[in-house]
Amino acid sequence: MALTQVSSNKCAGGLQKVYEHESTELMCKMKFAIFLPSKAETNKLPVLYWLSGLTCTEQNFITKAGSQLSAEEHGIIIVAPDTSPRGCNIEGEDESWDFGTGAGFYVDATQDPWKTNYRMYSYITNELPKLINANFSANPDKMSISGHSMGGHGALICAMKNPGKYKSVSAFAPICNPMQCPWGQKAFAGYLGSDRSTWEAYDATVLAGSYTGPQLDILIDQGRDDQFLSASQLLPDNLISVCSEKNIAVVFRLQPGYDHSYFFIYSFFNDHMKHHAKYLNI
């Protein structure tokens, strides 16, 4: 698992780097961004995995979210992987922006031709953490997860499917109930097939209904003027009502005036960092 450094820039006192590696899970070259706070030189630090949304690469988050200052402040490494395998030469992978390249949906595909490469769930929960723990000054016992939109969905399902693995979870405008929204239905049908029962394993709202494990504390921010909210792609109410029923602790904040963009993420990222620091640093 050789890592190739693609770039390294000093940022907020630490280093913002990008690496490339040959993924065994995805059978292709993958890039990920990692921010190493200055404390990482001497300490093993907790890691926050950030999952980006549709169409993103590892670059969007590190250039737009303004995460580095608070990550340096709290001494937390942030790892931001790409959102899908790339260059796998699968037919149709680049046809649409909400399926294929840049739209891995953090599932392990079961359907041809995707099932060989599109194993983002295993990549995120298994291969990538091992890689990070082996190559960086990371504390393997302290990891949290967060994400935006499709990445918010990814973060929620990773946390709910692996009770205790992540110390905390948060999301910005997550796709809360993909089985019930056009994006999710398109992706799940493509990657998982037509049997909707197999979709349930990757649907946060469904997973919340059957969650057992350590008490979760989920922070969700949602822009009120998010066009995808009004287009019923995100469906946070479904998740909230299940969580209320199941006593899963969620603070859901509807932020007036904000849309779905990284400007919105930028505005509230500090709160999320604090939310994770509460569980990672105590």
Partner: peptide, 20 residues
């Protein structure tokens, strides 16, 4: 239908939902 929580100052509260 539900429990509602407000964090009020000067008559204004952010819009948020608390599940537990």
């Amino acid at each position: 239908s539900r429990h509602k929580y407000e964090f009020l100052h000067n008559g204004w509260s952010p819009d948020l939902r608390i599940t537990v």
